[in-house]
Design a protein around this nucleic acid. Structure first.
Length: 583
RNA sequence: GGAUCGGUAGUUCAGCUGGUUAGAAUGCUGCCCUGUCACGGCAGAGGUCGCGGGUUCGAGUCCCGUCCGGUCCGCCA
């Protein structure tokens, strides 16, 4: 070993010991006759002190050649400091070196290796190995490690087995685009990388592994976001002989365990909300319930006056922002601009201030008198000091826009503290979703999700109204996990593919292996998967998942450090039997 | 596929309505400094203003195109 101790562990009790520590030079402070080196590793920083009057020439010379991020090994005696520092854990001691060995010189790094670095995202990603030396990134990865360990502890204690599933699998047209891998031995044919191990975990259930989990990489070739990477990690789980309630209880338990062991927080039992209510009261299937500000529908209150916008609207709906009546004209204009941005897409915003003196002033006073506005306030349950914000239009669009406005107001009013955690389940998702683009139904969750038995009779008459045994876990407005009770019967699965527009032949070709397996004794089963990266970033108080992944990709799906993706040699292409079309 | 913000010293940024030699901080180099710990002081080096074209007497600044990066919409069973 090139060290006896780490840079973070020496204390007063080690004084007079001779030790060897190794690490990176954080900085050198040369005061002429006194010279200090801060030596850093994963565990902390230890100060090396050289008194040039007493120290050996070689040591002084070695110290004066050091630059930032040189890798060195120092042997010397631990001493109590003459002037101590309370800023670092080793601040009471320092080392007087008998020997300094330069293990490797270093170029000056392009950005500072400090908590508050001066490096932008771009340059940090290009030199990610330097970025990883910084405390915040290291702590994020330590958190991720702790989350994985505690996940395994919890699931292992409940008899879950971690089983690996293949990464080279088969492409299917449903869902996200697949990443695809050409097969050299089977020219013209391709593997796909899994979007999730869905069918394999179901086959494991049929194989008798009644409790499975896997912390597993999944791949989706879709456009990226701050919370979306092309390769990402799931905590993938499945259980046999269970009903929805069992799954909810088991995995609510996992999240409670993680909060308790990783963050030291006791969270209350998760509340549940139906998909229908989530849409009606929050305009969103993953509502942030750290704050109320529920939607209030106003159709019956506002219609019938001369205000055409409201009269023509399919839905008039608003929120009541507590204590925001003092908002200035400028702030209200900002909000109006906000909802009119193309990404939000509202055509305008109506507001009404319930002033502290009891009067109500609205942006549509031309059409509504004080008495009308009082009725609005009653419907909103607004109090003096509140601000009512109202949008109108086509139901789905209006809900979506108001949902954005609600989140914006929540942020502006400081109701979305990242250290407060509101966890809940959204349940009773629809089984199917109509796609205008393809003029057919798509599976809302995935094609293996079972309909609710009580809705099954609607499957022919009104497929869009069938509810599924599907559920999402939502924390602070982030969908951290989701799953369903699966179909385990060949006829029902076949009917499902039917509804999704598969021919019998297509269904058999793509999912025949699963439907055949259903005929050999498939137990009732269900499960869910958590987005591990998102869960980690949420625990770490961040919205961007990149810094919870050691080597992430950028917005364009590129790894700027290794510069991938990249072209491959013609010989490789030939071997694979692949020609590349020039754009 | 679309919207939007950005690209100026190694790095993070400023640079107004177009106008002399493009600035600051930090980092880097050299010298000085006996208790620093974001050490301090003095001096110095460091620029294809992303790239291409255009407007103009004159472009970092205005216009068009393009590349790169961020955020969002679409997309993500």
């Amino acid at each position: 070993m090139l060290r006896t101790h780490t840079c973070g562990e020496l204390r007063m009790k080690n004084v007079t010991e001779t030790v060897t520590i190794s690490g990176w030079v954080q900085g050198v402070r040369d005061k002429g006759s006194l010279l200090w080196i801060d030596l850093r590793d994963r565990y902390g920083i230890t100060q090396i002190t050289i008194e040039t009057e007493n120290a050996a020439k070689e040591i002084i010379e070695a110290a004066r050649t050091l630059g930032r991020e040189y890798v060195i090994s120092v042997t010397g005696k631990v001493a109590e400091r003459y002037s101590k520092s309370d800023k670092i854990a080793t601040g009471d001691i320092e080392i007087y070196p008998d020997n300094i060995t330069i293990l490797n010189a270093a170029l000056t790094p392009p950005f500072t290796i400090e908590d508050e670095t001066d490096g932008g995202d771009d340059i940090r990603m290009k030199y990610r190995y330097l970025d990883l030396r910084r405390n915040p990134v290291r702590k994020n990865l330590e958190l991720r490690h702790r989350m994985a360990i505690e996940t395994r502890n919890y699931l292992d204690s409940l008899n879950f087995l971690e089983v690996e599933t293949p990464v080279l699998i088969k492409s299917t047209p449903e869902g996200a685009r697949d990443f695809v891998v050409p097969s050299r031995m089977n020219q013209g044919e391709f593997y796909a990388l899994p979007q999730s191990p869905q069918t394999f975990k179901q086959l494991l259930m049929i194989g008798g592994f009644d409790r499975y989990y896997q912390i597993v990489k999944c791949f989706r070739d879709e456009d990226l976001r701050a919370d979306r990477q092309p390769e990402f990690t799931q905590i993938d789980c499945e259980m046999a002989f269970v009903e929805q309630e069992d799954i909810l209880q088991t995995f609510e338990g996992l999240v409670c365990h993680l909060f308790k062991t990783v963050k030291g927080i006791d969270i209350p039992a998760l509340t549940r909300m139906t998909y229908a209510d989530a849409m009606k009261f929050y305009g969103n299937d993953k509502p942030d319930i750290r704050f109320e500000m529920k939607f209030v529908e106003l159709n019956s209150v506002v219609k019938g006056k001369d205000f055409k916008v409201f009269n023509d609207a399919q839905l008039v709906v608003g929120i009541c922002a507590k204590g925001a009546a003092e908002y200035s004209r400028k702030q209200l204009d900002e909000l109006t601009e906000y909802v009119k941005r193309p990404q939000i897409g509202a055509t305008g915003l109506v507001y009404a201030r319930y002033n502290a003196d009891g009067t109500i002033k609205s942006s549509v006073d031309k059409f509504y008198n004080e008495e009308d506005l009082k009725k609005w306030a009653q419907t909103f349950d607004a109090k003096p000091g509140d601000l009512m914000l109202i949008l109108a239009g086509e139901t789905n669009k209006t809900r979506k826009a108001l949902s954005e406005l609600r989140l914006e107001m929540g942020t502006r009013l400081g109701l979305r503290d990242k250290n407060t955690f509101a966890c809940h389940w959204v349940i009773d998702f629809p089984l199917l979703e109509w796609s205008e683009e393809t003029s057919r139904f798509h599976a809302m969750h995935h094609p293996f999700t079972s309909p609710k038995p009580e809705d099954i009779e609607l499957i022919d008459s009104a497929p869009g109204e069938v509810r599924a045994n599907a559920y999402d876990m939502v924390i602070n407005g982030v969908e951290v996990g989701g799953g369903s009770i699966r179909i385990f019967n060949k006829q029902l699965q076949s009917r499902m593919f039917d509804l999704l527009g598969f021919t019998k032949e297509e269904a058999q070709a793509q999912f025949g292996f699963l439907m055949n397996a259903f005929e050999f004794g498939a137990p009732p089963h269900g499960g869910l998967a958590f987005g591990f990266d998102r869960l980690c970033s949420l625990f770490g108080g961040a919205e961007v998942i990149r810094d919870f992944i050691a080597f992430p990709k950028n917005n364009s799906g590129r790894d700027v450090m290794i510069d991938s993706p990249s072209p491959i040699a013609q010989a490789q292409l030939d071997e694979l039997g692949i020609g590349v079309k020039k754009p």
